[in-house]
């Protein structure tokens, strides 16, 4: 998982898209994804893909580092296109749809810090669910350190070796078991912390006021442009 890297990019970026407010970015995402899903036109999908990759460049994001993440949708879309599971859609349309929506979501995640995304989602989702999302994200970073430490130790001591699948699997299982055990302690600690702080459903008591700026014009213009292109083509 590259959550840690995406989180770093979101927190340290200075581009207009990083500075744009979350609602404007979500609106752009909603418009673009809706049109990409319903459009069968290869021309529209190709233009949308170019628009999205233009946003990647504009945001100063290292596209090369995203290629392996985009490989998943590319690979699976190709499989569906080649086996004929994509229905009447041309293979190019199927692949463009898959890659573009995945790229859009990655763009959002790498230009918006997670607490802002969760804060915005709390307007629509139940408080309990947003709390769990928040704890999941936080726990991921707590546990990744523990697990990567365990795996480094295993590798250094020869616990994980190429060609020795069963021995490696046994050691990986033990490492995961130890992580699960540790997670129970973490659960107790987190529960005590939230109880001490007088937990009621919804961590976010007061939401930050949305500050609109000139940077919001970028996602709004991109969304509008996508809409215009959709109706023109």
């Amino acid at each position: 998982m590259d959550l840690a890297y995406l989180d770093y990019l979101a927190a340290h970026g200075e581009s207009p898209l990083h500075k744009a407010s979350v609602p404007s970015k979500f609106l752009m995402l909603l418009i673009l994804i809706s049109f990409i899903i319903i459009s069968p036109s290869v021309a529209f999908l190709a233009l949308s893909a170019m628009l999205i990759f233009g946003l990647f460049l504009l945001s100063g994001l290292p596209i090369k580092k995203f290629l392996h993440l985009l490989f998943y949708p590319l690979f699976f879309a190709s499989v569906f296109a080649l086996t004929g599971l994509g229905g009447t859609l041309p293979p190019a349309a199927l692949i463009l749809k898959a890659v573009s929506t995945a790229a859009l979501l990655l763009l959002l995640l790498s230009t918006t810090p997670y607490y802002q995304i969760f804060g915005f989602l709390s307007y629509f989702l139940p408080g309990l669910l947003v709390d769990i999302l928040f704890i999941s994200y936080r726990s991921f970073f707590l546990l990744i350190r523990l697990l990567s430490g365990l795996f480094t130790t295993l590798k250094v001591r020869g616990g994980i070796q190429r060609g020795k699948l069963f021995i490696s699997l046994k050691n990986i299982t033990t490492a995961l078991g130890a992580t699960v055990l540790h997670s129970f302690e973490l659960n107790e600690k987190l529960y005590q912390v939230i109880q001490l702080r007088g937990y009621r459903q919804g961590f976010v008591e007061q939401r930050e006021k949305i500050n609109w700026s000139r940077c919001d014009l970028l996602p709004l213009l991109v969304g509008t442009a996508a809409g215009v292109i959709f109706f023109l083509l």
Partner: peptide
Amino acid sequence: VKKLPMVGILVAIMLLAMS
């Protein structure tokens, strides 16, 4: 509520196991 953090933690474990 006692189980709430555990849900989040197991989500993290599942995501880590996948990687």
